[in-house]
Computed example of a mutant assay.
Amino acid sequence: MNSIVKKGIICSMIGIMQLGIGTAVIEASPRHHENKDYEERYEHHKDRDHRIQEERERHEREMKRRHHEEEWQWHERQQREKEHHEEVMRTIGGLALLYLITNS
């Protein structure tokens, strides 16, 4: 009976050691870190998509003619708004590109 208990204790210790080594390997594996990188990228894309959506909505509101505007005023404001919109979209795209470069 004494040898069965000893063998049981030894097998339990071996199992605990294997579990500890397995945990250490999983923590050190690059796949584990890729998940964190993926989550970071997902959050960044989600934020960028939100900013793009807000800019598109703002642009759409600004492009509509206001009831007190003359035709020529409306066309001038549309031109300024188009230039502003293009600049903002380039900035958002540039920030996304900068993020990709710095995190690769």
Rank of each mutant, 00 (worst) to 15 (best):
M1C: 07
M1W: 09
S3E: 15
K6C: 14
I10M: 09
C11A: 15
S12Y: 08
M13I: 13
Q18M: 15
G20K: 07
T23W: 03
V25D: 02
E27Y: 05
S29E: 00
P30G: 04
P30D: 01
R31S: 04
N35I: 09
Y38H: 11
E39L: 12
E39N: 12
E43M: 12
E43H: 12
H44V: 14
H44G: 13
K46F: 11
K46G: 06
R48L: 14
D49A: 05
H50I: 08
R51G: 05
I52A: 00
I52W: 02
Q53L: 10
Q53T: 06
E55D: 08
R56P: 05
E57T: 07
E57S: 10
E57R: 02
R58Q: 13
H59E: 10
H59W: 07
E60Q: 06
R61L: 08
K64H: 08
H67W: 11
H68F: 14
E69P: 02
E69K: 02
E71C: 13
H75M: 15
E76Q: 05
Q79H: 10
R80T: 05
E83N: 03
H85T: 02
E86R: 03
E87P: 01
R90Y: 07
R90G: 12
T91P: 06
G93E: 01
G94Y: 09
L95P: 05
L95Y: 09
L97H: 09
L98Y: 08
Y99A: 14
N103Y: 11
S104Q: 02
